[in-house]
Design a protein around this nucleic acid. Structure first.
Lengths: 347, 347
DNA sequence: TTGAAAGCGCTAACAA
DNA sequence: TTGTTAGCGCTTTCAA
């Protein structure tokens, strides 16, 4: 029987009426407990007695309740989201990192937010604002953040940042990557020690590829080799660029003996073009790639490539962010995961 | 001069103390307006007089205020996030879709949340709960959702869902994709009309690839061709699977005249292996791939492949979700983006 | 055009 | 172990 004085239509003046989704309060009411108790059943079940816990879980099942993590995040100042900022998803060299990051985070109840900068600094600021506004518990960026405004924004946000795929003397929080300069140098030595003198380079225009290229050229010079023939290509993701790059190198430098490419796709294109032009790989011209994608082991000839453990980078980034989120001590601020040159038939 | 009765240390009993980030209230105070007015400057600036607007914007700049979209999302029941669920990011066939989706959403102030199912239904439920809990304004899934529990969860959530890369008679909300059965059929006809009789198939084990395979086999049978030789491979993302698949097909069926592969990487591996075994492609054996990745145009021989406009799928998904979010009328519930066979040298 | 009040759904802090 | 209270930072509703 309704209370005599209860008005039939609720006044419902100011404020809102919600979305209609089941709320924690409804679950709590159904279970006959306070909302905070229901909250504990979900977040810290060990703090609740078994009987009460079971009653609440029953109510959760009955109603199909799915906690509103937006509300939880607002209240606890923990969104349980992490943002990953990559230049471009299609550059599969980052995919391993993103995938491992995603898996490691998901296992701990975190969700990944994606951001693509498209290699354009201009878009970066809008992207950072969009990301920071969602208050992620961590941000993983590809490369070191150099732009002062971006650094400032990230620093000011107070959100833990992991810079990846490169090293930094002065990371915002943590950097996990490897030395691009060392790669250029070692690939040059690798070729030189195998008797190659006339070297060439097919490189994309992104910052890190250019760093590898620069140290490759410098090392060749230091070793007294002839000047390195260099071709810049716009797109590191197509065989086509590799083919046109190799064609240009060979026309400019018919005596070319080895080429270092800034990606495996470029390398494969380079190999293809060399063969089409009647050169034998590696007998006439050797080719080294970068990334060590799965497919380079199965081409003919198989392609020698610089191997990066992208998955490890993702794992270390996740470990750092989880440690920060849980207030645990974090390890080194800069981690060098190194690289290796996987020798195959092409060089 | 401070008010005489003002206590020097705020009591700060129950409740919380925030994260220290600049809030809308602080901006409003600095600008000398009510919080709601500052909110309007950010969200609906045309509702605010120019003078007040400028004062608030000045305060925003001064403080470096970044709106808390979690709070805004909670209050407005619009998170401005969309979730994308893919089997695996490394399957680059979906990358175009995800990338276009991301770009289209970002341009409208939405952020993409990523979810990987890893082709495992078991993980799907946890993933859906994690996603729905974050109350995205839309969910884009790869493939049609068949599992009844998953369908039920999505339906119950009330969140708009776009199923992609496949068609459905009964989509949850909208489906945008193409007919895998039609592909198998047409590729079979394509080969048959070019005089190929002894057909083979190298296929991954995922649902949609198997659907293409099934209709390919059925069509061959209907046309009175000899039984199709079929090889299942675990991984569609490696040349290696393509090579071993082709090796098996050729040993079982030395007279093989054409092979349809469930991905371009498989196709490339198949071509490579065929050549290693002394077969000419396409003279002895033709190869057709799926996906029409950028690289297949530049291999030798270039590879004939089934082309899907993945980017268009992403764009249509974004269009639908934005229309729903803004309460605009939506178009067709099922959109067939079709496919085409790009003829190249390998078939 | 501007503002006061009232929450959105949840959890931290404190109390019993 | 359970509950009360007071917000988290924002926007909707209603009123001026």
């Amino acid at each position: 029987m309704p209370l005599p004085m209860s008005s039939s239509a609720p006044p419902l003046r100011k404020g809102r009426r919600g979305t209609g989704a089941v709320t924690l309060r409804q679950v709590a009411e159904l279970a006959g407990v306070a909302p905070i108790t229901a909250s504990r059943v979900i977040n810290t079940p060990e703090q609740v007695s078994p009987e009460v816990r079971e009653r609440v879980l029953q109510a959760v099942r009955q109603t199909g309740y799915v906690p509103n993590l937006l509300a939880g995040g607002l209240a606890s100042a923990k969104s349980r989201m992490v943002a990953a900022v990559v230049p471009n998803l299609a550059v599969s060299v980052f995919l391993d990192t993103v995938q491992t990051l995603n898996d490691a985070l998901f296992a701990r109840g975190y969700q990944l937010m994606l951001g693509q900068t498209g290699y354009a600094t201009e878009r970066e600021d809008a992207l950072l604002e969009a990301i920071i506004g969602r208050r992620p518990d961590g941000i993983v960026v590809t490369g070191v953040v150099h732009a002062p405004e971006a650094r400032q924004r990230l620093l000011a946000s107070g959100i833990p940042v992991v810079e990846t795929w490169d090293l930094s003397d002065n990371p915002i929080d943590m950097a996990v990557g490897f030395s691009h300069a060392a790669i250029g140098q070692q690939v040059c030595d690798y070729l030189r020690l195998r008797g190659r003198q006339r070297l060439g380079l097919i490189t994309a225009n992104d910052e890190r590829a250019l760093r590898r290229a620069g140290s490759f050229v410098a090392q060749a010079q230091a070793a007294g080799l002839p000047p390195v023939a260099v071709v810049n290509v716009a797109d590191s993701r197509t065989l086509h660029s590799g083919r046109t790059g190799m064609a240009r190198l060979l026309s400019e430098q018919p005596g070319l003996e080895a080429v270092f490419c800034s990606s495996d796709l470029l390398a494969m294109g380079a190999v293809t073009e060399a063969q089409c032009l009647g050169r034998r790989v590696p007998d006439d011209v050797a080719v080294v790639g970068f990334g060590d994608f799965a497919f380079v082991a199965d081409t003919v000839p198989s392609i020698t490539s610089v191997h990066i453990n992208g998955s490890r980078i993702g794992q270390l980034a996740a470990d750092y962010l989880m440690a920060r989120a849980e207030g645990r001590p974090t390890g080194e601020r800069v981690v060098d995961v190194g690289f290796s040159i996987t020798e195959r038939d092409s060089a």
